[in-house]
Amino acid sequence: MLLGLNMLLWTPFVTEDHFPLFERLKKVGYDGVELPLFEGTPEHYRQIGLALRDNGLQCTGIAVIPDEARSCASSTAASRQAGLDHIKWATDCLEAAGGELLCGPFYHPLGVFSGAPPTRDEIDFVAGVHKEAAVYAGRKKMRLAVEPLNRFETYIINTVSSAAELVRQVAEPNYGLLYDTFHANIEEKDPVGIIDPCIGQISHVHLSENDRGTPGKGHIPWAATLSALRSARYDGWFVIEAFGRALPQVAAATRVWRDFFPSEEEVYQQGHDFLRGQWEGSGV
């Protein structure tokens, strides 16, 4: 089990101040971290990558579309180009950090709705931009994993099956989807059952409790979920994703209005121990 932790637990922008956390996470037993790629330059992330490697950690990255002017679903060519440029920038930053996979809902800004379901044109626009982005990432030997979000955060891609359709439409070998237990818990008729038919498109996994708190302290069916992934021979990253109220920007975007855990240490320590144990049990 390749286990990482999303740094959004502490910050939307990792700096030198967070380097001591890397040593701590390595001692707990993590294999890597997921870097939020919301601002900064490739040179900034190059220094972060050096610090990660000094602590024996790998990394993945997560990116979003910051505004409508960069929406990949836009009918305006200039906006789609700006969206493509934004994904390329995030790819460059992650490459500088030594990362291997960029994930996230990098197709449309969070919390922006049309008031209707996505149109065929909107999906086609996203597919067109993402195909170019995947080709660009492929030249750098990097992968992309698009993330379906619940209906309260976006209207473009809500389910694993709709994301799988997009992956098939993009049709690039380094382009897959991110399966997130939190969003699947809201949107899927069968959050575990959807794994097997879409395993060919799943290239990244977020492990997030139903309330965004400490894994194992909610009602996500962890044993069944991990067993399904293991049975399907999934061998990619698993990344714990938990959010608190300490970061107003992140809390507002993810609709976090109350505390879900007493401390960040509980999330990364107990979350790690619980999920490692569940994974070992899933192989029995």
Rank of each mutant, 00 (worst) to 15 (best):
L9W: 10
W10D: 15
T11I: 09
V14G: 04
T15E: 11
E16G: 05
E16V: 04
H18W: 02
H18D: 07
H18P: 00
F19Q: 00
R24A: 14
K26H: 10
V28G: 05
V28K: 04
D31L: 00
D31M: 00
L37A: 07
T41F: 09
E43Q: 15
E43F: 13
H44T: 02
Y45D: 06
Y45P: 07
R46Q: 14
Q47L: 14
I48S: 01
L50P: 00
A51G: 04
A51D: 06
L52K: 04
L52F: 03
D54T: 07
L57V: 01
L57S: 02
L57P: 01
L57D: 04
L57N: 06
C59K: 05
G61P: 08
V64W: 14
V64Q: 08
I65F: 04
P66W: 09
D67R: 07
A78M: 06
A78C: 02
Q81N: 12
L84V: 08
L84N: 11
H86S: 12
K88Q: 14
K88H: 13
K88C: 14
W89A: 14
A97K: 01
A97P: 07
A97T: 05
G98H: 04
C103F: 07
G104C: 08
P105N: 03
H108Q: 12
P109D: 07
P109E: 06
G111C: 09
F113K: 01
S114Q: 09
E122A: 10
I123Q: 14
I123R: 14
A133K: 06
A134I: 11
V135Y: 06
Y136F: 13
